[in-house]
Design a binder for these strands. Structure first.
Length: 513
RNA sequence: GCCGCGUUGGUCAAGAGGUUAAGACGCCUCCCUUUCACGGAGGAAUCACGGGUUCGAGUCCCGUACGUGGUACCA
């Protein structure tokens, strides 16, 4: 694929604000950016939008890096790997924004506003009516507020000289249709009169998102700007800023991604726990409230599956295939095939994706993850070869990595509780005798092989005139504790003679009582 | 309220004027298996509503309803 030399190199960015956990929608935005960039041999930039100092959260930035690493996504440029367009934290670019704000003022596209928070509150209260429950600071009321448009230049100069706190707001044009092309939504249009005079530069000298995103996208030579649809409403502000500052011809191509919804409306970061499934990529503990939220990783998801399922939520290749590696996604992804409408997240389907990936992955790939999970539960794994055999035996029964525990602990310890109720109703003295005799026959067995164990079992059953099927379930309960797991003789073979015999004996006591 | 965006089974979705309206998840039945899964075969279930345009509309247009986002010196 040759890129014409006239064509600009594709550069995209993900620009999260480090204020908390990274949720599903955020990860998907990262993913679509990344897939698009890699498909076009472009750059994927990670920029930290930390312009709101009041919302600084310790550890949140590191958490973002960790999540991307887990997903297997490495930015080409980031605060950790600066390229030639740094710095990559907006707080460190603070001084760059002011000149653009001033430039806007000089051109008459923006103005100083001296209204205090109390003034704004009063305005909202005073202008609030039944038909207009949330009045905006816009063309209809700005002349009634304290700003460089409503006051004389002398007054303004005085206030400025006295270092009166102020913000800089964009002056939305009177009567203009602002239209732009969106890669997903196609033509989108807004009436300027209905958009408010957004703050561009805050009282503390920091830019708001609106100014920062435009300035940084320009300075960082971003060619395609993908973000969540929640930004669509403020797009006209950004389009205008591009027009005023850098020229529409340099504006990146926009794509507003559909939202990911929870079971009952929008997916909220806060009630992660309420849904019964994670919303964050990884575990997150809010350092302020100490509130803990479990992540997909720790819940037992594989990064391959997580990336796969997220990619399919809002995009579809048009093929029937649903299982893709990230490399396949890079090849197949197309922004044109991203849906317009939001998608409800389905946890059941998410688990299916994970199960498919567990089946798909090699035992060797699974080993470190499963081993880690076991050791976290204080089960030491000393023999990797043995453990791999077990993983192979139970992997298709596991939807989550954590499922391996229940599916395989009995290979390492006798069940603490056995499902006595499953055998008791059909239990007979003959069956009890069978297991006593079986025990002594197994005791004498020299080679502990699946086939020999099975042979002894079946021969004895025939001798006793009991159907082997009626004995296999009790045997399973004795060894495993419940009605699940692989072939019972396979299990006996793997746990060894001593364990098999002791489990039969202790189970017999419980069942016979 | 106003503005924006959206609407194919319960969920994810294919579909770009003419199809018996794919497929997947979940659910149900059966087969395989004297466990549970995996696998296999079936089944129930959909174009929000109303008007147009057209020989013909899930596909185009207009309304309505519903959902969702925005309406902060938050991103």
């Amino acid at each position: 694929m040759m890129m014409s030399s006239m064509e600009k190199k594709v550069r995209v960015r993900f620009a999260p604000s480090p204020t908390g956990g990274l949720h599903l929608g955020g990860v998907r935005t990262v993913l679509y950016n990344y897939l698009f960039a890699k498909q076009h041999q472009g750059d994927f930039v990670l920029r930290i939008e930390d312009t709101d100092q009041t919302r600084f959260v310790e550890g949140a930035e590191q958490y973002i890096y960790d999540c991307l690493t887990w997903c297997g996504i490495t930015p080409d440029e980031s605060p950790l790997q600066p390229g030639q367009f740094g710095p990559y934290r907006q707080s460190e670019r603070k001084e760059m924004y002011r000149q653009y704000a001033n430039q806007l003022i000089e051109a008459g596209y923006a103005y100083y506003a001296f209204d205090t928070p109390e003034d704004l509150e009063k305005m909202r209260a005073d202008f609030k009516t039944e038909s207009n429950p949330s009045p905006q600071y816009d063309g209809s009321i700005r002349m009634q507020m304290k700003n460089s448009l409503s006051m004389s230049s002398n007054e303004v100069q005085d206030l400025l000289n006295q270092h009166t706190p102020y913000v800089i707001r964009i002056k939305m044009p009177e009567n203009e249709t602002i239209a732009f092309h969106d890669l997903i939504h196609h033509e989108v249009r807004f009436e300027s009169a209905l958009v408010d005079d957004k703050v561009l530069l805050k009282g503390d000298g920091m830019p708001t998102y609106h100014l920062a995103v435009v300035v940084d996208d320009f300075l960082m030579k971003i060619t395609h700007a993908f973000r969540g649809e929640e930004w669509l409403s403020s797009a006209p502000v950004h389009v205008l800023l591009w027009k005023y500052l850098f020229g529409l011809e340099h504006m990146p191509q926009w794509a507003h991604l559909p939202l990911i919804m929870g079971p009952r409306g929008k997916l909220s970061k806060r009630d992660g726990a309420k849904y019964g499934f994670p919303v964050f990529a990884m575990n997150w503990t809010d350092p302020r409230s100490n509130e803990f939220t479990e992540g997909f990783k720790e819940k037992g998801f594989l990064p391959e599956a997580f990336v796969n399922l997220l990619a399919m939520l809002g995009w579809n290749s048009g093929e029937e295939k649903e299982l893709y590696t990230i490399d396949e996604l890079i090849e197949k992804f197309s922004i044109e095939r991203v849906h317009k409408s939001g998608a409800k997240f389905d946890y059941e389907k998410a688990k299916w994706f994970n199960q498919e990936w567990i089946k798909k992955l090699d035992v060797d790939d699974l080993l470190p993850l499963v081993k880690d999970m076991f050791e976290n539960k204080d089960v030491r794994i000393s023999d990797d070869v043995y453990f791999k055999t077990i993983i192979h035996l139970v992997k298709e029964r596991c939807a989550l990595i954590s499922d391996f525990y229940d599916q395989a602990v009995y290979f390492f310890m006798a069940p603490t509780e056995i499902d006595v109720a499953a055998v008791k109703p059909k239990w007979t003295i003959e069956k009890a005798n069978f297991f006593e005799e079986l025990s002594s026959k197994l005791e004498d067995l020299n080679e502990w092989e699946v086939s020999t164990i099975e042979e002894i079992f079946k021969n004895l059953a025939a001798e006793k005139n009991i159907k082997p099927g009626e004995l296999q379930l009790p045997m399973r309960i004795m060894l495993v504790g419940g009605k699940f797991g692989p072939a019972v003789f396979e299990i006996a073979h793997l746990i060894g003679k001593a364990d098999t015999l002791s489990r039969i004996q202790s189970a017999l006591i419980q069942i016979n009582e």
